[in-house]
Amino acid sequence: MTAQDSASIYKFSATGIDGNPVSLSTYKDKVLLIVNTASQCGFTPQYKGLQALSDQYANQGLVILGFPCNQFGQQEPGNSDQIQTFCEINFGVSFPLFQKIKVNGSDAHPLYQYLSKAVPGILGTEGIKWNFTKFLVDRSGKVVKRYPPTAKPEDLVKDIQALL
């Protein structure tokens, strides 16, 4: 691992929605938007906007990574098959989804422990406040910005374009 990798998300891996391990180094040289998602949340319609971003910018190097999470109001109760089917049928999601993870607490996924520390939220808080918190990562794997759940995917276009 190079010094650059140790300060990037590329040292992490996660389990894809299909159960297979995925190294985040797979996404080297891509701009990433990492989002904790849920199927029964008031922000769930953001899947549509996330898919629109993916459709518009994938060929320029943007990859959206969706991490379902059931920590907020039990709003992601399904298993991986149910989550994937819901996302495909209701929002046409084709960007990579992963198996359900925790984003807060001592058993939070290591990627989210890293993201939360790399770019703290309001007043320096590290914890994820709710579903659809978003992290923008540049082509070198550096976390550059954190967005609250209320930030709509279309509101991120200018920042995404700047990194592409």
Rank of each mutant, 00 (worst) to 15 (best):
Y57I: 12
G92M: 03
E126N: 07
P110R: 08
Q113C: 07
N79T: 09
D138H: 10
T44E: 02
T125V: 10
Y114P: 07
Q113L: 12
G127Q: 12
E88N: 08
T44I: 10
Y57P: 04
C87R: 00
Q46Y: 03
K142G: 05
K28M: 13
Q71D: 06
I83W: 00
L33P: 07
V103R: 06
W130H: 05
I101D: 05
N36A: 03
S106Y: 05
T125C: 04
I83R: 01
N36S: 08
K129I: 14
V137F: 10
A38S: 09
F91W: 05
L115Q: 03
A118P: 09
Y27C: 04
N70D: 15
Y112S: 05
T44R: 07
N59V: 02
E88G: 02
R139M: 13
V31K: 05
L97K: 01
S54C: 08
N79K: 14
Q71S: 04
Q71R: 07
Y27W: 11
N104V: 00
V119C: 14
T125S: 12
Q113I: 09
I64K: 11
T26M: 15
T133I: 04
F67Q: 11
F98W: 09
D107T: 13
F91S: 07
S25T: 01
P45N: 11
Q56H: 12
T37E: 01
N131D: 06
A52S: 14
N79A: 14
G141W: 05
Y27N: 13
S39V: 01
D81M: 03
T37G: 02
P68G: 07
F98N: 05
G92I: 01
L53P: 01
N36W: 04
L123T: 12
G49L: 11
Y114D: 00
A38G: 03
N36P: 07
K117P: 01
N104P: 01
H109A: 08
N90Q: 13
Q75W: 04
L32Q: 10
S140Y: 09
D138S: 08
F43K: 06
V119Y: 01
I122Y: 13
V93Y: 07
G127T: 06
F95K: 02
K30F: 09
Q113T: 12
D107L: 10
F67P: 12
T26V: 11
C87K: 00
V63Y: 13
L62Y: 11
F86R: 02
G49K: 13
K129M: 02
F67L: 04
K117H: 10
I128N: 00
D107E: 13
I89P: 00
L53Q: 04
I122P: 14
S140W: 03
G42Y: 11
V35M: 00
T37V: 14
N59G: 12
